[in-house]
Computed example of a mutant assay.
Amino acid sequence: MLEEVVATRYVTPLREGGSLPGIVEADDLGTYVMKFTGAGQGRKTLVAEVICGQLGRRIGLRVPDLVQMQLDPVIGLAEPDQEVQELLKGSGGLNLGMDFLPGSLGFDALAYQVDPREAGRVVWFDALINNVDRSWRNPNMLIWHGDLWLIDHGATMIWHHNWPGAQASAAKPYNASDHALAPFAPDIAAAAAELAPLVTEELLTEVAADVPDEWLVDEPGFDSTDQLRRAYVEALLPRAATIHERISLDAPTAAKPSQAPGWLAERLAPRRDHENSDESSRP
């Protein structure tokens, strides 16, 4: 189970993401990026953050520590932004905290080199969890103390937005052509040989158990939170064994229809519009 802390001070919002996460200090004297249950994407993004973040850490990838974070909305009374105030008021209780990496820089493929082994490990992992939000448009990776760290896994396991079609969705291939690490010749075969054996039923059961019950209750089609946790295991376990055979790495595209769910596609649209405007203005 994730450690539980209490938020003691709301520092500032992070406006890069559509969910408007915030930097928050806690009673363990740590500083975290808090992701809120009251955000428009809903609690399933927090479920995805926990399962995929914990899974990544357990198989040896660099993902910041996660905690359960209790929030009393009163800590944000001095925040002048009305949108932030409403988000805090709608998120009282249990939220998710991700360890803040001070001084980290956003990954830039033009500024940093990644060796094929590490690139392959990240691409394989993203294929396993069907991450549609680690493209060259939005890498969701940080460089901290010279190492590559993975963040923001809310837009993964898209099948859990439609459980009746989950098995069919989880069996689909993964197009990594636009992945942020595609230019670094990712060694998918080596990654699969190394990481797939680690993704066992026992491990998946353990990481699913880290999700708080209150983020899983009342899911249509499931009689209990344990049954829902089992559904995550059953979706990921067979995918781990064979997804390396269904990863495609073709030439990256300048623009293509989004594979993301509606809320994420809306978040990415302004970024793509800006990029298209920049391209059209070039001679």
Rank of each mutant, 00 (worst) to 15 (best):
D273I: 08
G93I: 03
A241H: 11
F100S: 06
L96D: 01
R9M: 03
T31H: 00
W163L: 10
L203P: 14
G17E: 15
E86G: 12
T242C: 05
E194F: 04
A170Q: 03
A191N: 06
Y112D: 08
V122K: 02
A166K: 12
A7L: 05
L2W: 01
F184A: 00
G22P: 06
I151D: 11
S169Q: 14
Y32R: 12
A190C: 07
N175I: 04
A127W: 09
A241R: 14
L148K: 07
Q85S: 09
N276I: 05
V217N: 05
D218L: 08
A269M: 13
F125C: 06
A155N: 12
R15K: 14
S91Q: 09
K89F: 10
L20P: 07
A119Q: 09
L105Q: 15
A111D: 13
R282W: 04
R282G: 04
D115G: 15
M141L: 12
E86S: 12
A127V: 11
W136T: 12
K256C: 12
M69C: 15
A170W: 01
M157F: 10
A231D: 02
K172M: 13
I129Y: 08
W163E: 03
L94D: 08
V211T: 08
L88S: 11
E202R: 15
A260G: 09
G53D: 08
A185N: 15
W215E: 10
R117H: 08
N95Y: 01
D65K: 12
L264W: 04
Y232R: 11
N138Y: 00
L96V: 03
L87P: 15
E3D: 11
D226Q: 14
V24Y: 06
R267F: 14
L105N: 07
E83L: 03
E79L: 01
G60K: 14
Y32L: 08
V207D: 07
A170K: 00
W136S: 07
S104K: 06
W215D: 09
A190F: 03
A155S: 14
C52I: 07
